[in-house]
Amino acid sequence: MTAHELLLLIHILLFCYWLGGDIGVFYSSNIVVDDKASPEARIVAGKIMVACDLVPKLCMTLMLTTGGLLTTFFSVVHPAWQMAAIVLLGPFWLTLVLLQHYNHHASYINQLVKFDFIFRCALIVIGLIFISYALLNGQLMGNTWIAAKLAIFYLLVFCGLMIRLALKDFGTAYSNLLQGIHTAYDNKMMLKAMNRAKPWVYTIWAGLIGAAAIGIAKPLL
């Protein structure tokens, strides 16, 4: 297997587990907010939801690195600093996500969550600036489909941030469910938060499928 084939395989697997994991999270979340289900079933579904949620998050962190490395096989030339940023981004972002998932009781977690939010906002802005610059200076000449895939990726990052904001009230209500002190109001708040998040979830699914289609067709946009 060549380096190109290996990177392509990893990239495809990241897509599959991102979309598949996200669907698993979505399905289990519907059980969590179902007040007709028993508290025990809802708690088990919540544990499945949290565990599954890590998979698409990890896949997202590595997409830019594998995708950036793949562009070198399409005659896209990256300056040394840019290539270093592409290679280091994945491990850095991956570590950031893992720390938040496994150390959520740490004293620094609130600051880390805020940093993560700002980091993703900055990533979107810098990424869109890079796309514009690359198109203007001809770096993506003949490969404008790469710009389209990158634009979709940053849209997906934005959708993730919107989901985080939509679920702002979910955590407290879910915590009450875990403690067995949840009320009808908590049920209402969880359902309301989940309904706010759904349009952004659907957008992520559509974006992933669209990006995959562009990657296969490689149209001259």
Score class of each variant (00 low, 15 high):
Lys114Val: 02
Ile109Glu: 07
Ile129Met: 00
Ile131Asp: 11
Phe130Ala: 02
Asn143Phe: 06
Val113Asn: 03
Tyr133Val: 04
Ala151Leu: 06
Leu123Ser: 09
Gly127Asn: 13
Val113Tyr: 03
Ser132Glu: 12
Leu140Cys: 03
Ser132Pro: 09
Leu112Phe: 09
Ile109Leu: 02
Met141Asn: 15
Ile129Arg: 01
Ile152Ala: 07
Ala151Pro: 08
Gly127Cys: 14
Val125Ser: 00
Phe130Gln: 02
Lys149Trp: 11
Lys149Cys: 12
Leu112Trp: 15
Ala151Glu: 06
Phe153Ser: 05
Ile109Gly: 04
Gly138Gln: 11
Gly138Lys: 15
Leu150Met: 12
Leu123Pro: 08
Gly138Arg: 13
Leu123Lys: 08
Asn110His: 15
Ile118Val: 04
Ala122Asp: 10
Ala147Thr: 06
Phe115Glu: 05
Ile118Thr: 04
Ser132Ile: 12
Tyr133Arg: 09
Leu123Glu: 06
Phe153Leu: 12
Gly142Ile: 13
Thr144Glu: 15
Lys149Thr: 14
Lys114Thr: 10
Lys114His: 13
Ile126Glu: 00
Ala148Met: 12
Phe130Glu: 03
Gln139Val: 05
Ala148Trp: 10
Phe153Gln: 06
Leu112Asn: 12
Gln139Thr: 09
Phe117Trp: 09
Phe130Cys: 01
Tyr108Val: 12
Gly142Val: 10
Ala147Arg: 04
Ile124Arg: 02
Gln139Cys: 03
Gly127Pro: 14
Lys114Met: 05
Gln139Ser: 07
Asn110Trp: 13
Phe153Ala: 04
Leu140Met: 04
Thr144Lys: 15
Met141Lys: 15
Gln139Leu: 05
Phe117Ile: 02
Ile124Gln: 02
Ile146Gly: 00
Leu112Asp: 10
Ile124Pro: 00
Ile124Gly: 01
Leu135Asp: 09
Val113Thr: 03
Leu135Glu: 14
Phe117His: 07
Ile126Lys: 01
Ile109Gln: 08
Phe153Tyr: 15
Gly142Arg: 12
Ile146Met: 02
Gln111Phe: 10
Ile146His: 02
Ser132Arg: 12
Phe153Met: 08
